[in-house]
Each structure stands twice: as structure tokens, then as C-alpha cells.
Design a protein around this nucleic acid. Structure first.
Length: 454
RNA sequence: GUGGCUGUAGUUCAGUUUGGUUAGAGCAUCGGUUUGUGGUACCGAGUGUCGUGGGUUCGAGUCCCAUCAGCCACCCCA
């Protein structure tokens, strides 16, 4: 059998893991800096926890887990043949792999509401799974790094999240463009053009503007049954260009008859008025009226971040405010706002742009090379001493291995120093100490070695 | 769910156009030159059901059909 792994999944070798940890560590540090606390939730959730939260497309992409044991128990042949997939699925599968971290978090909050003091700021870094067709920047198993504040309506949370995003990407040295919009504005627009019930179709179409252009958007709108008149009304909005202030003023006129729309504008004005605290020079903050985001549960601000360099055009971070995610689980009036970093996509971008720092490794510094068991025994206490001094070190384990083999091992592992021990060294107590970068070697005692390696 | 491209050694690929003897190369791995010296040198070694199944043919890695897998794009998304 030829070994392989499922489509869309990957192994991570040491070099990749070191780099991935660099991303996770950076994100985690910033999360903690902003006062978020960690939680974890199980890989699997009950099916009904997940279904229906992500739209129709989302349901299709949820990985279902087959019931254990005789999963066909109680299913008759007719049912199998008539194949109402949805109904059948619910009978043979009660669990599913989590699709994101936000919905499990909402479930967690409801379930643990009595232990939590609100507002609750949590972060969560775990893999999620989607039964999507893999392609560039898209995997079936990938890590999300989420930070959410729940139980607070304050728009200051939105402001903080923008700064947090900026902080993370500044630390990663990655120039990004942070786009903001507000679902209320999109609702207002749908309302004003008289197609309030088509809000989802309209936002999805508008979202594709920079990809398929004005004509493409209009075509899609028409296909979805949006009236000609309504599409016409939409044009000035789609084509509008200007500064943030200009955009907001323009929207105020356009949405003057929509209470929701005006509320959305007010919220955005607040957010844009605050971060005088500062976005770093390498990041751009932009109000993008066409930003929509597919997830159904967003109700207020929405965020999306794209790398300002490199070939990956999809978003590397996204989020928004949801007013009633916990309502479905029985806890109403609990507003939350959060963002999610896509670690794997960030990795791809940093990798392409060569932005990983050179020295992100904590590997072995010193290797003991010996000629046999006697030498190994002589080295063991020395090894313990070196480790006690806090130096990452190891002893080549196979006593019969040739020197060449041991030296190659050090070289492959990029171990900077080697200590060679044979009978001479054991007799004199002066060990051969070799600097693998310069090739120089000297005979010194173990204390001197520790001091020069530290 | 829709469309396009690609499957040959551990890996990256050549060979497919125009069917013809024993299917090659780089890298990696292992061994040796050197029983106490790596990264540079030289010598040597090994591995393939040519993705799978069927068909055409005297003969198929090469042509045809099916199937599976991977990649890319759409949809959607981190």
C-alpha cells in the first residue's frame, strides 16, 4: 500500500512547524496583550449545533461523522433508495467536524453562561474542517485563530479589533489592507432600492465587484430576480469612489430614508473616528461599501483583511459583529464581535514573500560525537551538565556509527557546535570542540565549552 | 456541485508528437575513497505493476475508452 493522506490535508515537517509556530506565537501574544483568554472546544460538535448556521452552501461543506456501530440500524431499504439525503444524513450521522470557531464558541457561551462574567473576551486557536474542493490557499483542514468579545455592545470593541489586526500584521511585517463595512448599511441599501428581501443575493453579488466588474454584478443581480429599477438605483453606489468621509456623506444622502442604514453609518463613523491611536504605516484601513461576506450571522460591522503583496487574492483574516448567535441556543440579547486569522493562508503569503525571520529555531546547539560505548558513557554526565546549564544538546545515540555519519548528522541538523570525544580526550579531560560554521577546533574542558556556547 | 490540466523511482521531471530491443536524468538516500572529522570532490549502489481496469495492435509508458487520484479555476470561503 502506498501511504497517503486525505485530499486537502497536509503533513508539517520540522521547518514548517517552526514557521507555523512563529505565526501562532505572534497571534497568541497579541491576543493576550489585548486581554483575551484561551478556550478550546472539541473537534466534533453535535450535528444540529452546526447545521443551518452558515447558509445552504455551508451545510454542504460540513464534514459529517458516521455514527458508530451499526449506523444503518432502523433504516429500511425504501428509505435508502428514495434517498432524501438530508433526512437520511440526520439519521446515520449525529456528529460533525467543526466548520469554524465562532458557532462552537456561541454554543460554549450559552452552555457555560453561569461561569462567565461578561463581557467575555476569548481567543481560540484550533483547526477547522471544510469539505470544499481544495485549491490554492484553500485546504480541507486549516487553523483559525479567533478572538471574540461577547456580551458587550460597545463599538470600542470594533476599534480594538482593528488595532489588534494591525498589531499582528505589523509584527509579522506583512503589509495588509483592512476593509470595513457594516451589514446595516447593506440592509439599508436593499431597503432603499425596494428589494429588502433579496438582501443576501444583493450582498453576495456586490461583493464580487472587483472580480467580475459592474456589468457582471448587474447581470448576477438580474439573474437573482432583482428588479431593473432597483439595479438602476444601485449604480451610483457601486460606482462611487472617494475618501472615507466622502463615502459616508454620500451614504447619508442615499440612505436618508432608512433607519437601519443610518444606524450603520453612525456605527462606522464612530469606528473611523477613534483609531487616531493609530494604524501602522504599512497597513491600510479602508471603508469598502462592496464588502459583504457570506456568513449569515453577521449583523453589524464586518471586516476582511487581504495581503497587500503576493499572489494570494483571498482573505487572510475576517470577522464581524453578530447580534444573536447565542439566541439559537437559548440565550438572546447577547451581542458579540470577533475576528479570525487564517494561519495557513498567512503562512503561504509569508512564505512567498520570504518574510519568515531567519532564526526562528530553537534546535540543538551542541552535539557529542563519540567512537563507542566507553566514550558515550564518559559523555553522559557531561551532557547532563551542559543541559543543566540550559544549552540544547544531544549525544549521537548509535555507538558504532562512523564519524562521517555523525558529522553529517550535525551538519544536516544545522547544529553549530560539536564535541568530539575519543580516548585522548578521555585521558586528558580536554575535549575536542569544533565550530561547525568556521571549521575551527580547539581542545578545551567542558566548563569552557559551556561558557563559549551559552 | 460545474469546468480545465496533470498522473513515469523517495522526490522533481525527461521519454508520449511519429507505438518498436533492457524506461532514463538531477536531487535525496545508502556505501566507499578516508577503521578520528560535516558542509565542496571522486567512485559505486538500490528502487518503478509508467495511477488503475479494459480495448486496438505482431508489439502500448506512447493510441482509444472507462475509472480513480492530484492540481488549478468557478461557487463559496480563512
Amino acid at each position: 500500500m502506498k501511504p497517503s493522506i486525505p485530499k486537502g490535508t497536509r503533513d508539517f515537517s520540522p521547518q514548517e512547524m517552526v514557521r507555523r509556530n512563529y505565526i501562532f506565537d505572534t497571534v497568541k501574544q497579541v491576543f493576550q496583550l489585548y486581554g483575551f483568554l484561551p478556550i478550546e472546544t472539541p473537534a466534533m460538535e453535535n450535528m444540529e449545533t452546526l447545521m443551518g448556521k452558515y447558509g445552504e452552501e455551508g451545510d454542504r461543506l460540513i464534514f459529517k461523522v458516521l455514527n458508530s456501530g451499526d449506523f444503518l440500524n432502523g433504516i429500511d431499504v425504501n428509505e435508502l433508495q428514495n434517498a432524501n439525503i438530508k433526512q437520511l444524513t440526520s439519521k446515520i450521522s449525529e456528529k460533525a467536524l467543526r466548520y469554524d470557531l465562532t458557532v462552537p464558541f456561541a454554543r460554549y457561551v450559552v452552555q457555560h453562561q453561569n461561569e462567565i462574567s461578561f463581557p467575555f473576551k476569548r481567543y481560540q486557536i484550533q483547526p477547522v474542517w471544510r469539505a470544499d474542493r481544495p485549491q490554492k490557499g484553500r485546504y480541507r483542514e486549516f487553523y483559525q485563530c479567533d478572538a471574540d468579545v461577547i456580551g458587550s455592545n460597545s463599538l470600542l470593541n470594533e476599534v480594538e479589533l482593528v488595532q489588534l489586526i494591525d498589531d499582528v500584521f505589523t509584527r509579522l511585517n506583512l503589509p495588509v489592507i483592512i476593509k470595513i463595512n457594516n451589514r446595516k448599511i447593506l440592509s439599508g441599501i436593499a431597503e432603499v432600492i425596494g428589494e429588502a428581501d433579496k438582501i443576501i443575493d444583493i450582498t453576495v453579488a456586490i461583493d464580487k465587484l472587483d472580480k467580475i466588474g459592474v456589468e457582471g454584478v448587474n447581470k448576477e443581480l438580474a439573474e437573482k430576480g432583482v428588479g431593473e429599477e432597483a439595479i438602476k438605483k444601485l449604480q451610483p453606489l457601486i460606482e462611487f469612489k472617494g475618501t472615507t468621509t466622502e463615502k459616508l456623506n454620500f451614504l447619508k444622502t442615499l440612505l436618508s430614508t432608512s433607519a437601519v442604514g443610518l444606524k450603520g453609518i453612525e456605527e462606522l463613523e464612530f469606528i473611523f473616528s477613534k483609531p487616531s491611536a493609530g494604524i501602522s504605516e504599512q497597513s491600510t484601513l479602508e471603508l469598502d461599501i462592496t464588502l459583504a461576506r457570506g456568513l449569515n450571522y453577521y449583523t453589524g460591522a464586518i471586516f476582511e483583511v487581504k495581503a497587500n503583496a503576493g499572489s494570494l487574492s483571498s482573505s487572510i483574516c475576517g470577522g464581524g459583529r453578530y447580534d444573536d448567535l447565542t439566541g439559537i441556543f437559548g440565550l438572546p440579547n447577547m451581542s458579540g464581535v470577533g475576528i479570525s486569522f487564517g494561519a495557513d493562508r498567512i503562512y503561504d503569503v509569508l512564505n512567498e514573500l520570504n518574510l519568515f525571520p531567519e532564526s526562528v529555531s530553537a534546535s540543538t546547539k551542541l552535539l557529542f560525537v563519540t567512537f563507542g560505548e566507553a566514550e558515550q558513557n564518559y559523555c553522559l554526565p557531561l551532557l547532563a551538565k551542559v543541559r543543566k546549564a540550559g544549552v540544547n544538546s544531544e549525544l549521537y545515540p548509535d555507538a558504532k556509527a562512523k564519524m562521517k555519519k555523525q558529522m553529517s548528522y550535525a551538519d544536516d541538523k544545522k547544529i553549530p557546535y560539536v564535541v568530539i570525544v575519543g580516548s585522548d580526550e578521555m585521558n586528558s579531560g580536554l575535549l575536542t570542540f569544533k565550530n561547525m560554521t568556521s571549521g575551527e577546533q580547539t581542545k578545551i574542558d567542558i566548563e569552557t565549552i559551556i561558557n563559549s556556547v551559552k
